[in-house]
Design a protein around this nucleic acid. Structure first.
Lengths: 159, 159
DNA sequence: TGGAGTTAGATGCGGGCGCATCGAAGTTCA
DNA sequence: TGAACTTCGATGCGCCCGCATCTAACTCCA
């Protein structure tokens, strides 16, 4: 992962304050999650597990159960572009984590279903993922930090 | 950008609490900066400007001034992999933003220097970047949020 | 009912990244 | 001094993304 510093953006045209809180917060907000993500991905890779992107997809697929799910529903749920779902599913099929089958109700479409291997993969990913999150994130926060962080970040969502 | 949800990771094997603050904070910490980054990149792209990665590089190059800087120094300063610097410089040279010249002191190496076009590019990037940060980030925070955010994120750095 | 518009999904192309490796030049040390 | 090691920087390869576009099938409405 290319780690952006997103270093110092002065927020004012006139009064330049390199060390102001907004710049520091912005820079860290860009950089810290990149590092956390890289650490988490590395933990998964070290265990021979697929990247984190598969996690969300596998969780959604497991929730869909035996009935399966249409790719476009998965797409909306995961917030991915259509071609990314198409190719993610290609890769997951290739690894045996999901099955594609034709959709009886819509001949254009298909239904994807998690396989036993997919469930097993998710079960192997979870502790590794959880361990990385705990080690690199949860354990480093002070009491109240998680709630405060969640609250502040909520203000930045949806817009 | 593929937006990871990094949805819900239960932090405990036994007591599963889907809505707990740690999971919410983690999920948002992964997702929010991805969205902010995408919005910022989009703002730059809309203005025909290069991606944000160039910003840090151009700032470092401008700081180096006429003396220029060795690629390996730039690499360390930006925290990029060696091959990423090599290729970033390729692209920047191709766009006329920097010049490569041989290094008299070390025949293996080279010195890179920002050009007038590079400075102009940086000057065009800055207001667009700053505007996006203000709009999508600074203006959405409450008083004290930036400082609190910076402080919490600082705890997650360097490890 | 049939033509226009929409929706599901795949894919060709170019670009950037990560990995591994390479060659050239510098450094170290016996 | 010269052989082993390190450092600087480039690059081939495969993978994944974003963009644009395509085909096929579905829906809507006159």
């Amino acid at each position: 992962m290319v780690l952006l510093f997103a270093r110092y953006v002065s927020m004012s045209e006139t009064t330049t304050q390199p060390g102001d809180a907004t710049s520091a917060a912005w820079s860290r907000l860009i950089r810290v999650p990149q590092v956390l993500l890289a650490q988490t991905e590395a933990a998964l890779r070290d265990e021979g597990l697929p990247p984190l992107g598969w996690y969300d997809a596998l969780v959604a697929l497991r929730r869909a159960g035996e009935a399966g799910i249409r790719p476009f529903e998965l797409q909306r749920e995961l917030g991915l572009e259509q071609y990314n779902i198409s190719r993610l599913l290609d890769r997951m099929v290739a690894k045996g984590a999901v099955q594609r089958r034709r959709c009886d109700a819509d001949a254009r479409g298909q239904v994807v279903r998690i396989t036993a291997e997919g469930r097993a993969m998710l079960n192997r990913m979870l502790p590794v993922y959880r361990g990385a999150v705990r080690r690199h994130f949860a354990d480093r926060l002070g009491p109240g930090d998680a709630a405060a962080l969640a609250q502040i970040l909520a203000r930045l969502e949806g817009g």
